[in-house]
């Protein structure tokens, strides 16, 4: 494991825990897209089915369990515990417009036509676009709480660090996975506009708000 992969994983972990803590501490999930969070739970569920079939390392298993647990806890907080604060009126992105095409693509373009491999591919494709309802929600309301922008930055940074990890692995291990790389590029590109706003506004102490 190289340093980019490790910091990528840690950045992902920070993002997930930051969101969970924010909701827990404020007792509110206002401004958070439940649809994005349900899709992330679906991403982890379909990707980590190999927890039961393929042991890699204690690190690998522990991280998978943490990601899964936090992801389900987040969905539980949004749709059950703090349901009253959920901003459903602004969370209007049609999730089926992502899930159905992504499912079709996973059937057509995969490494191996087996159930586990198709589900893994589905999770990679879905992850690349799962943030869209959240970004759409911010565009719609025109603003985001600063802590939410820190969450988004850490989440976007994770895949960007994975991209560097894949370049590293290609040079030093001769390893590459085209499905993960293409989806990872798409995923990172979706955050570019947000990264720009984060760096020019949030890091200068301003709240992220979009012009009306």
């Amino acid at each position: 494991m190289n340093v980019f992969r490790l910091t990528g994983d840690l950045s992902h972990l920070v993002a997930i825990i930051l969101l969970l803590l924010k909701i827990w501490k404020t007792r509110s999930c206002a401004g958070i897209s439940g649809k994005s969070q349900v899709m992330f739970a679906l991403v982890f569920t379909t990707r980590y089915l190999d927890l039961f079939t393929n042991f890699i390392s204690p690190y690998n298993s522990v991280m998978k369990v943490i990601y899964l647990g936090c992801s389900y806890a987040t969905v539980y907080m949004i749709y059950m515990k703090f349901k009253a604060s959920y901003d459903g009126n602004h969370d209007t992105f049609r999730a089926e417009f992502l899930i159905i095409p992504v499912g079709g693509l996973a059937f057509l373009v995969n490494h191996e036509f087996t159930p586990l491999e198709i589900l893994w591919t589905f999770s990679i494709y879905l992850e690349s676009v799962a943030i869209l309802p959240q970004l759409f929600m911010i565009t719609k309301t025109g603003e985001a709480e600063t802590i939410t922008t820190h969450y988004l930055f850490a989440l976007g940074l994770y895949r960007a660090l994975y991209l560097i990890n894949w370049i590293w692995r290609y040079y030093f291990e001769g390893f590459f996975d085209l499905i993960a790389i293409v989806a990872g590029c798409v995923q990172t590109i979706l955050y570019c506009d947000f990264f720009y706003l984060y760096i020019t506004k949030v890091l200068h102490g301003k709240k992220l708000s979009l012009p009306a």
């Binding site: 494991m1 190999d50 690998n60 991280m63 490494h111 390893f175 996975d177 993960a180």
Partner: peptide, 10 residues
Amino acid sequence: SEQNTKKDEL
């Protein structure tokens, strides 16, 4: 193999 290497990522 490629499959095994791939699955070590999260």
